[in-house]
Design a protein around this nucleic acid. Structure first.
Lengths: 135, 135
DNA sequence: CTTGACCTTCCAGTAACTGTAACGCTTATC
DNA sequence: GATAAGCGTTACAGTTACTGGAAGGTCAAG
């Protein structure tokens, strides 16, 4: 399989696959013409990577997960640990974003959004006092 | 005020303030010794930036918001538009993260997390079929 | 006069790609 | 056999919003 084929099958852009090779996540063979020659196991890894990335795992997490995936003697606890830490980060991010959304939607609701210059959003951002939530 | 003072008062690291000057968000004067000399309006802008960044606005959004902040003849509609677009992006991100969290927490729950190699998380990531949600 | 806490600039690195240029190989068509 | 489309290759630069570090200048205190 050439890079285009595995790109289609994994859903990853060819560019990304080349990048993954560059950083050592996959190691395809090479044809005599210099083209990358992917076999089934490499394709599998790319699918794995695409899914792990879609779940928001970092590249370094992916590297660790892939190593565990390859290791038949792994302990599931090691996998669960990585996943759990990631889950915690995701939840923290969600909390952050929820708080941003709440503040922002209040401000947006309070803003007339017309031709006049008066604007609670700007007033809040530029407020001199500490009461930066008040509208 | 030196950079350390405005860093303390705005909550932004000095390094970040220098960066903001570099990209033209603030333009402090200079003392004869080469030190940046911040006045009240500059401090105000830094506080503004710190708040807008905390709400997740991009730097380019901040640049636009700051221009509107400075423009006494602005229309609040222009501010509201930026804020609303940002709100939409935040909501999209939250939705993404929620879906990641749901999938991931299911997988984590299904994983024994012991010394055995069998692991639903890895099984899901490496699954050959399309049923990547199933555990 | 030196010590420590400031300040300065400049360069490099981060995460994970993405874009672009300049080029080679393959295959089909004329 | 020439050529053009559509693959593939490398290498380098750019993205976002900083952050770290080196090498050095300034200032106030003791």
């Amino acid at each position: 399989m050439n890079i285009g084929d595995v790109a289609n099958r994994s859903g990853l852009p060819a560019k990304t696959i080349r990048y993954y090779e560059e950083i050592g996540l996959v190691k395809p063979l090479r044809d005599t013409n210099g083209y990358r020659a992917f076999r089934e196991p490499e394709l599998h890894k790319l699918v794995f990577l695409a899914r792990a990335r879609a779940l928001g795992f970092t590249i370094e997490d992916c590297r660790a997960l892939l190593a565990l995936y390859d290791d038949e003697t792994r302990a599931s606890a090691d996998v669960k640990k990585i996943a759990n830490e990631h889950l915690t980060k995701i939840e923290a991010k969600i909390a952050d974003l929820n708080s941003m959304r709440d503040t922002l939607s209040h401000l947006v609701d309070a803003c007339a959004g017309d031709h006049r210059p008066d604007c609670p959003i700007l007033r809040n951002l530029g407020a001199t006092s500490d009461k930066s939530i008040r509208v």
